[in-house]
């Protein structure tokens, strides 16, 4: 479904991603891990249209998104939960969710999507009229995920959904990710919390300095002690 080939992104002269190939199959949950500065957020942002790649192909369901303007990505079926959430903080929770379903195809399903977001995150039910900026971190993360789901994506891009959250809230978040994936939405998950990411993902890519240094079945990568130690920083 997602087919990234030879993706290059640079900030000025500095390359951030070089010759990156990556695939996500329909309904698959794929993890991307790696140290800080490896290019994980750059990858997610490029796939969401926030950054224009220097070259390469971003094939999604047969169309190449790489040359399209950023507002065309969502229509093709991508939705992002960006790093540090980036909610529209002056707008209400309801308005944030509605904005996720801004495009006609998603708007037609708005009422139903809103119901399923509330079913996924019941805590949001009583907060719909609240300014998004005044919510707790965990609830803001729920709104960010909800906003992306309102777009009815076939591919959900999740950038560090556990960042800055209390362990109990992280559990809730990962349970939600699992349920979203079980409903048939393909997910590309970037995480610092490698243990959690590898547990959720069926396949994973290890990024270092803007390149894929390792890829494979998550369980297999986790099962090899030398890989755990060298690439994942686990004992």
């Amino acid at each position: 479904m997602l087919e990234v080939r030879g993706l290059r992104v640079s900030y000025g002269a500095a390359p951030a991603l070089s010759d990156l190939d990556l695939d996500v199959g329909a309904g698959e949950l794929v993890g991307v891990v790696g140290p800080n500065g490896a290019g994980k957020t750059t990858l997610i942002n490029t796939l969401a249209g926030l950054i224009a790649p220097a070259s390469g192909r971003i094939g999604l369901n047969g169309t190449d998104l790489a040359r399209l303007p950023s507002h065309a990505f969502c229509a093709a079926g991508v939705a992002i939960v960006p790093e540090s959430r980036r909610l529209f903080s002056a707008m209400t929770v309801r308005e944030n969710l509605e904005l996720g379903s801004y495009l006609p195809r998603a708007k037609a399903e708005r009422a139903r999507s809103l119901e399923s977001v509330i079913a996924l995150f019941p805590a949001l039910a009583s907060r719909l009229g609240t300014r998004a900026g005044s919510l707790s971190g965990g609830q803001q993360q729920m709104v960010a995920i909800g906003r992306a789901l309102m777009a009815r994506p076939s591919l959900l891009l999740l950038d560090e959904p556990s960042l800055g959250l209390a362990p109990a809230v992280v559990e809730t978040m990962f349970a939600a990710v699992r349920r979203i994936n079980a409903a048939g939405v393909a997910i590309l998950l970037v995480e610092q919390n490698i243990g959690m990411a590898m547990e959720l993902a069926s396949r994973a890519y290890v990024l270092e300095e803007g390149r894929v240094v390792l890829q494979g079945q998550a369980a297999e990568l986790m099962g090899r002690p030398e890989i755990r130690k060298a690439y994942l920083g686990l004992e």
Partner: peptide, 14 residues
């Protein structure tokens, strides 16, 4: 309003 607050994210939603 969304564009005024965060134009790139608004664009990411179409």
């Amino acid at each position: 309003r969304a564009m005024a607050e965060d134009a790139p994210i608004a664009a990411a939603f179409g």
